[in-house]
Design a protein around this nucleic acid. Structure first.
Lengths: 189, 189
DNA sequence: TAACAAAACTAACGTTTGTTAGTTACATAT
DNA sequence: ATATGTAACTAACAAACGTTAGTTTTGTTA
């Protein structure tokens, strides 16, 4: 068992505690206890509590960034791209539902360059999505609604998916994608 | 200036600090400093940090509960009721955008009966909304999508509205309601 | 002016926090 | 058998936390 693996274990355990109580309400002693060791032993594998948070969040932020880049490069219509973004979000959520809580709720506890890098990535992400939506409206694929309302109604739904995906009996991923795309794009009436 | 007013002032100041950093990252000294007094002085008006949180959250939770009851009693079609729920959320968000952060992110730090009361109110709220949606599907007003997907895509959007409502140049409330209802009900394509 | 209540203050308390230092247990390689 | 490196341990630190006790300031009422 090498150090890298042990570190990943710590990050994984911390993720699920952060999801329950938030970054600041989880102590190093809590994390250690959950792993069956003492708090001081954690420092053989990580440099501090901050590193756990930044490892966690920046790993996911990079996934979203590269996922968005893949969508942009895909060459489809704006409507195709929106579908791809939705599906990407669902894929990441299904595979990392524990860690997503920290990304959504605890990013402001990042420090220095980690914080500014995250904020920049998040702004870029939203900007890219906004451009796709605006292009869709210009080309007549989308109804002429306020782009900001479209952007945040889709993004809000996708970003909080991690909260209810698992507690509702683990819907099949493909069914979820299909229904989600339908509801978000075509509405409900 | 009576005690009740001073307490409300504390709760208001705390709300906006909680929104920025979360309940556990805000100290009594932070709150006091923001008010220009010392931490110990806060205890002339409140019994403790917990009381700030529970005052804040339960006040809002009751607003949502009574708002939902008004919708149920309104006697409209399921579709009418969904529109009313959306408009109610927007009204509460516009009037209490600071305090909504704690309701969404810090409710788990409530204690004892406050916690159980809140959880019950939240479950009841979702149940009531779910019933409206299911009835809408049965009566043919809504497309036959998975009710859970409809419920949470609408609710997620409404619950995170406080995050972006003000930073996007304060859209007019009535325009926001109109666009939001349109996007959530009729989709974007 | 004296009395009173409200709301601020200073000082300190016991805990909990993240973290460091130094030490021990144990498996693997020489 | 010895040496080495990994990963656990105990003990302790300074700082920050929520909170309490007792005191002073301030403004209003009799």
């Amino acid at each position: 068992m090498n150090t890298a693996t042990r570190k990943e274990e710590i990050v994984a355990v911390a993720s699920s505690l952060f999801k329950e109580k938030g970054y600041n309400a989880v102590s190093m002693r809590d994390i250690a206890q959950e792993m069956g060791i003492k708090a001081a032993s954690l420092y053989n594998h990580i440099s501090g509590k901050q590193e756990i948070l930044s490892t966690l969040i920046l790993y996911l932020a990079r996934k979203f960034t590269s996922g968005m880049q893949a969508v942009i490069d895909s060459g489809g219509t704006p409507l195709d791209k929106i579908k791809e973004v939705i599906e990407m979000h669902i894929d990441i959520t299904v595979n990392h539902s524990e860690a997503l809580a920290a990304l959504n709720n605890d990013w402001m506890h990042l420090e220095n360059e980690d914080l500014s890098n995250f904020v920049r990535m998040r702004e870029d992400y939203e900007d890219n999505f906004r451009k796709i939506i605006k292009q869709g409206i210009e080309e007549g694929d989308l109804k002429p609604r306020h782009p900001e309302v479209i952007l945040f109604s889709i993004l809000s739904t996708l970003r909080t998916l991690y909260l209810w995906y698992q507690k509702r009996g683990k819907l099949d991923v493909n069914v979820l994608k299909k229904d989600m795309v339908a509801v978000l794009l075509e509405g409900i009436v």
